[in-house]
Amino acid sequence: MGLWVGSEVFNGWRVVAVVGELDFDTVPMLATRLEEDVTGGWAVLDLGGVTFMTSAGLALLLEWHRRLAEKGGALRIAAPQAQVLRLFALADVVHVLDVRGTTQEACG
């Protein structure tokens, strides 16, 4: 499976929706899209459609978390599936990343 990335503004937040597998091969596509679309300091990454994520995907999320925090903004993660949450727990980043249950919660 590949990766699909969509983007819109909702409630003042740039929401980037990701569907598919986020791994070494697909991370560059998401990285490019984030560079293009996240021009402000506030973004929500909707991972509800991500069925698989490797450490490459996690590294990208942590990089963008840092980058936006340095601008005085924030990156929120919305609706991750169980396998993505397990990766967050294994990497011990659950308390680093701002994870919300839904995109609406993340944009509130």
Rank of each mutant, 00 (worst) to 15 (best):
G48M: 07
G49S: 11
W64E: 12
S55Y: 10
L97V: 07
K71I: 06
R76Q: 05
G41K: 13
A82T: 11
L62F: 03
L97W: 01
L47T: 06
L85W: 08
G72A: 14
V38K: 05
F52T: 07
V94T: 12
V96T: 14
W64F: 04
V94Y: 04
G48D: 08
M29Q: 15
T54F: 09
G72Y: 04
G57E: 11
E63C: 04
V93M: 03
A78L: 01
A56M: 07
L97H: 02
L30E: 08
Q83V: 11
D46F: 07
T32V: 15
T32R: 15
L61R: 04
V99T: 04
Q83R: 13
V84E: 02
P80K: 06
E35P: 01
L34S: 00
A56K: 01
L45S: 06
W64G: 06
A59R: 15
D92I: 00
V44S: 02
G48L: 10
M53H: 13
D46R: 05
L45K: 05
V99C: 00
D92E: 12
V94D: 08
W42R: 15
T51N: 09
G40R: 09
V96E: 04
G41Y: 11
W64N: 11
Q83S: 13
A43E: 00
T39V: 09
R66A: 02
F52H: 10
A82V: 14
L68K: 09
A69M: 13
H65A: 10
G72Q: 08
L75H: 00
D37C: 08
M53D: 14
H65I: 03
L58W: 11
R67W: 01
L47I: 07
T51R: 13
T51K: 09
V84H: 03
R66D: 12
L97I: 01
R66N: 06
G40P: 04
R33F: 14
F88Y: 07
E63L: 09
E70R: 13
S55E: 05
A78F: 12
F88G: 02
T54N: 06
V50E: 07
L62I: 09
D92C: 01
W64C: 09
W64R: 14
V84N: 02
L30W: 02
A59S: 15
L68I: 05
E36K: 11
E70A: 14
L60F: 03
V84Y: 00
F52P: 00
G73F: 12
M29C: 09
G40N: 13
D98V: 04
V84F: 01
L34T: 06
W64Y: 15
F88S: 02
T32Y: 10
L90V: 04
V44G: 04
A82M: 05
L47F: 05
V50I: 08
A59E: 14
T39N: 03
A43C: 12
L60C: 03
M53F: 09
W64I: 10
R86T: 15
M29E: 14
G48R: 02
R86N: 07
H95V: 07
V38Q: 10
L90S: 11
H95F: 06
R33L: 09
G40W: 05
Q81L: 15
A91H: 01
D92V: 06
R76H: 07
F52Q: 07
L75G: 08
M53R: 11
A79S: 14
A91D: 04
G48W: 09
T54D: 05
A59V: 11
L87S: 02
H65Y: 13
R67P: 01
H65V: 01
E70Q: 15
